[in-house]
Structures are given as structure tokens and as C-alpha cells.
Design a protein around this nucleic acid. Sequence first.
DNA 1: CTCATAAAAATGAATGTTCATTCTCTTTTT
DNA 2: AAAAAGAGAATGAACATTCATTTTTATGAG
Lengths: 208, 208
Amino acid sequence: MPRIDTAQRVDRKAAILDAAERCFVRSGFHGASMSDICGEAGMSPGNLYRYFPSKEAMIEGLCERDFAEVGEGFSTLALAPDIWTAFEALARFHMIEEPRESCQLWVEIMSEVARNPQIGTLRKKIDQFIEGKIRFALEMARDRGQTAPDADLEPAVQFLITYADGLMLRRARDENFDPRPHVDLMFSILRSMLLPPSTPAIARLNTP
Amino acid sequence: MPRIDTAQRVDRKAAILDAAERCFVRSGFHGASMSDICGEAGMSPGNLYRYFPSKEAMIEGLCERDFAEVGEGFSTLALAPDIWTAFEALARFHMIEEPRESCQLWVEIMSEVARNPQIGTLRKKIDQFIEGKIRFALEMARDRGQTAPDADLEPAVQFLITYADGLMLRRARDENFDPRPHVDLMFSILRSMLLPPSTPAIARLNTP
DNA sequence: CTCATAAAAATGAATGTTCATTCTCTTTTT
DNA sequence: AAAAAGAGAATGAACATTCATTTTTATGAG
């Protein structure tokens, strides 16, 4: 008499979310049909509904997962020995290594945030979490002498958040957008904000 | 025997787009139904279809109008006597005076861009247009001695585009986001990129 | 001025399709 | 053999669009 295999169930849910993610990127949350998702997941609707009670629940599950993945990268940021290196690695990961589809999903989620209060609440939490982690990381950097001692951190925090969002939006909408020089520019500007004025100014941007 | 009044027809179409815009911001392009739009426009479906042949056409019409409005602001940028003032006015207009709903619509459009080739083509055009106008405005500023003579313009162009997109995305997703200090920060950074190093560095950001 | 008239504007019910979800049944697993 | 996994047809609501019909409006003949 078989009992439910929890681990296998979690894997299956993840695979369904993967399939749903592909559909949502292709057609949007409201443009993709459950039938599309069933096809992509190789699964009948009857069976899919054993894992998620509704389409809404799938969207929320996907947002939750996406937020958790993003949050994870920031959680250990301040612990790294060299914060600049850790920061750059994190930015490179999110903006360059991750496929463009991640950015498209991000923008899709952001446009859903105002419509779905459930997702809105999740968004608020992750935004505050990330902002706090960035602020803490910069404070650590300053305490360790890795920035100018009197560096004003708050503008740098806000700059990073805004600029990263801008890069996500640009990459999502333009298939030819190469994020690499733009990440370099982001850190050039960040350095000019945080390092003593003696250090060389904004580096050049290699525009294609 | 009445003939068609073209001007009145254009007004009517604009009013329909206004109503549609409200619905699309509220529910998204694919979440809003034609019935919603008819209700918002105070118009029966049969009549609405005399002005737009399909929902798709309405979405395209709305994008086209939005792009045209944005483009208009940039078209005369380089002609202004003081480019810094003109730039700041334009940024304040788009980021502060315009309601948050504009930002939400912008994000909605950006997430539609990859799905609808028609809109994708429009997006490419307006992006290139804006980028060209910003570049030209900065060149004019440099020629007039309003920037450092050896200022590297390209990073500044890219910074402005990315940062403005970031502000749009943040304002769209967060109802409590106050764009004003962030626009100030944007121009502080821009000045630090374009003015000689003698001029005072990044201004403080008033965070609430 | 007025009224007949035909074009244009507008209506709202009808249509056919698509969609999310459910239900019944079969297959697999232990 | 019983519980879980899975399939796929069925259901009812919602949707974009169309159609038959009525109302409004501008015009020019009387």
C-alpha cells in the first residue's frame, strides 16, 4: 500500500514550474493556457491539478521560487572576504550568466505585482531583504576600509538597485542587448561613488 | 446625408485608448476583456469594433501612441538653450509629473515587446530614436562647453537610459516609491560623469 | 424653418471558440 | 489489493467577435 513520496513530489512540482516558466515567458501569465503548460510539462490536466490547485497557485509558486533564488544570492553577500569581488560575481551571475528569459520573467512578475496582492506582499519582502543586504554589505566594506571612510552609502545602495533593475528591463526587451559592458559601467560608477576621489574616475564603456 | 467627421473620429479613438489604458493597467493586456474596456469606455462592443478592428489592434494603437508621446519629449531636447535644464525638466516630467500608471503601462508594454513582433519593431525604433537624441543632446552640451571638454559621452548615454528604465520599473512595482530624490541622484551621477573633477562630487540622497 | 432621408453611430443579443477546472476511468507502484 | 499517479473526455463560464436592429445626425429639397 504505497505512501506519498514527498521528495519525488517536490521534484515533480519543480519540473512543472520549469515548464510553466517557459510558457509564461513565451506568452505571459495570462496569455499562456493550462493546456499549453500541460503540453510543455508532458502531463494531462487532471494530473497537473494534483500538484497545483489552480493556475493562480502556479503563478504564485513560480514567483515565490524566483524570489527565493534571487534572495539566496544576497543572503551571504556580506560574509564574503572581499565584498567587491562578491558583489561583482553576484551581478555577473544575475545579469550575464542567467539567461535572458530570467529577465523576461522578472519583468512579467513585476507587472503582475500591482495586480496580485499575494505577489505584491512577496515582492515587498524580497525588495526589503535585498536592500537590507546590500546596505549591510556596503557597511561591512566601509568598516573594513574597502571604501572611503566617509563614503555616503545610501546613494550607492539606491543606485545599485535602480541600475540593476534598469539592466534587467533593457535585457528583457532587447534581444541584442549585451549586458557585459553595462555591468562594468555599473561598477565603475559604484566605485566613483564609494572610493576616495584620488582613485581614477569612471572607466570607459566598450559600446559595440 | 452626413459624411464621416475625421477629427471627431480621431478624438473618439483617443478616448477609447484612454479607457483601454486604464483597463490594461488594472488587469494587463491579456487580463482585461473587451467587455471591461467597453464598460470603461461607456460603449457597446459593436460600436467599439467600428473604431478598432480587434483587441490586438487596440494594444498596438496604445503602444504606438505611448511611444509617440515619449519620443516627442526627446525630439526637441538638443534645441534647448540650456541642455541641463531641459534634461532635468524632461526627466522630472516622465518620472514625477506623469502618474505611476504610465510606468505600469510601460512595464506592461515592455513585457509584451518580446511576444508581439509588431510592437517589437516599434520598440526598436523608439529606443534608437531616444538613444540618438540623448547622444546628440550631450554632444551639443559638450560643444557649448556645458560639459568637460574631454568628457566621455557614451557611458553617460547608456547610464541615462538604464537608470531611467530602472526608475520606471521601481515606480511601477512599488506604490510607495518616491521618484524625486532618485531623479536628483540620477543627475548627481550624470554630472560627476560629465563635469570636470573639480566640481563637487555626488550630492546627498534624501531617503525617506 | 422643417422635415424626409440616408449615412453614420450605436446597441445588445447571438455565435463559436477557448479556457480553467472537474470527473470518471485506467494504469502504475508498492 | 489498495493507494497513488495519470489520462483524457466533459463541463460550464468567459471570451473576442459578429450581426441584426434601432437611434442619432447632418443635409438639402420644399
